[in-house]
Design a protein around this nucleic acid. Sequence first.
RNA 1: CAGCGCAUAGCCUAAUGGUAGGGCACCAAACUUUUAAUUUGGGAUGACUGGGGGUUCAAAUCCCUCUGCGCUGACCA
Length: 526
Amino acid sequence: MGEDLRQVRIEKLDRIREAGINPYPERFERSHTLAEARIAGEDLQEKIAEALAADPEADTKALRIPVKVAGRMVLFRHMGKLCFGRLQDAHSQIQFSLERGKLDADAEKSKESYNFFRKITDIGDFVGVEGFLYFTKKGELTVSAETWTFLGKALRPLAGKHVGLQNQEMAWRQRYLDLISHQDARDRFKARIEITKTIRNFLDQHDFMEVETPILCGTASGAAARPFMTHHNSLDMEVHLRIAPETYLKRLIVAGYDKVYEMARCFRNEGMDPSHLQDFTMLEYYCSYWNYEDNMDFTQKLIQHVIKVVKGSLKFTYGDQELDFSGDWPRLSMRDLVLEHSGIDFEDYPDRDSLLKILDEKKISVENRDAGRGNLIDQLYKKTVRPKLINPMFLTQHPKDLSPLARANDDRPTIVDRFQLVVNTWEIVNAYSELVDPIDQRERLQDQAEAKAAGDDEAMPMDEDYLTAMEYGMPPISGWGMGIDRFTALLTDSQNLRDTVFFPLMRPIVEASEDEDEEGAEKSES
RNA sequence: CAGCGCAUAGCCUAAUGGUAGGGCACCAAACUUUUAAUUUGGGAUGACUGGGGGUUCAAAUCCCUCUGCGCUGACCA
């Protein structure tokens, strides 16, 4: 199985050891990272320009900036007594050169060192180079080596130097190969890191406190979704992985923390497709004394800030869509939007039967005919309105029975004070004025629990612990949740959320064995 | 879970049912300024064209099945 390429490298490894060199040394002291060396190169360029301005005949070769750098060698070409290689790390690349006569004061030793480098290094190996920066005739910043250090052997060859790794499955299973080969992959993950950092900075500056709440919990609440379940041995109990941090964050509001947020890994045991991961990251924050309208103002500021920092502009493209986040985003109620796009004013149909009737008359297909009125409205919205929502807009005032944790509107009790930020047909943010009345909350959870008992396994379970917390009293709150993976996908032009996480979950590859055609061979971790 | 599609060497990519070919990589040689370096030479490698089975004189190609992956749909952010 293609052992020959690997075998050649193992033989080189032996030759390195025979020469008394450790092919996997314990440390290497760098003077510059590759990015820092590039910055030093800019300084060098300025110095050369100054020297030439003062004296056009100046000997600029005397201007030397010593550096000691390291990285993975990703390109190598040699021509007799001179060779060039390229080092790469996560952030940058730099070229280095080796000259046969310049690696040692002793000419013979220098030649030996040069030839040895050529013999035993391969593309993919880690190499350290100490020397000085200069510009080649073609103007490329290069480290001229005075000594080199072997820093780590790669036994397997990298993907082709230009085509890279085209195999999508391998890019997910072995993300490190994707990252080594593709600048756009490195840029994408750099953007994700910058997005979360910028969000944290912004929230911190606005006096939000970052907190951590349980992932393993007795009841998974805070959203309508099927949880992952597992068993806790010491307590001998079933536990769920959280589907949202919501009710714990609200407990902290009860405790007196005014503004809290969590960058929360959440888990939902649902279907898998390009816009859904089962293990995903949701940012939630809660702010005391705000209502959902304050929250919309803040949301717009936060997101515009992040996009400006990460993209440099509030207008950018996603796929073949032009997205424009500038200005104030429109705020439209679900009722008005549905009326506009379907001609149905759902306020005219106060119960599910009459609504179902008009849907049939309008020939709008309904997947789940047993659903309640709120769910039917949701289906109507998703069918007729959402596919048309491209530029950012706030969708507000959802029906109450879709939102068991949201506060009902004071003037119109059938709707709730809620908004979603919709971009490119995706719900990026979901937020509302929180329900803080424990008695109302209990009734709504009871409705949910009944629906759950009746077979709706996505309805919320009763959560007595949370209700107890609520009964100790809550201030007005507005809360907020955003899918970080989706937001990242939007800003990095990723069509699949798996490209926004380093290691998406994949089925294990089971080695085909000849005499075991039964599936009994469960593989345990080795 | 259903429908459609994909799987060829380390990587990338060809092959009307008729000898599995090329590029990169690899090995050897020349070359002091390369930038996907170039030029020359080389062999090796597909023991199973993802695994297994079938049709056929003949299968990468057609059929069945299994595995993995994608896309679309359903549930969901």
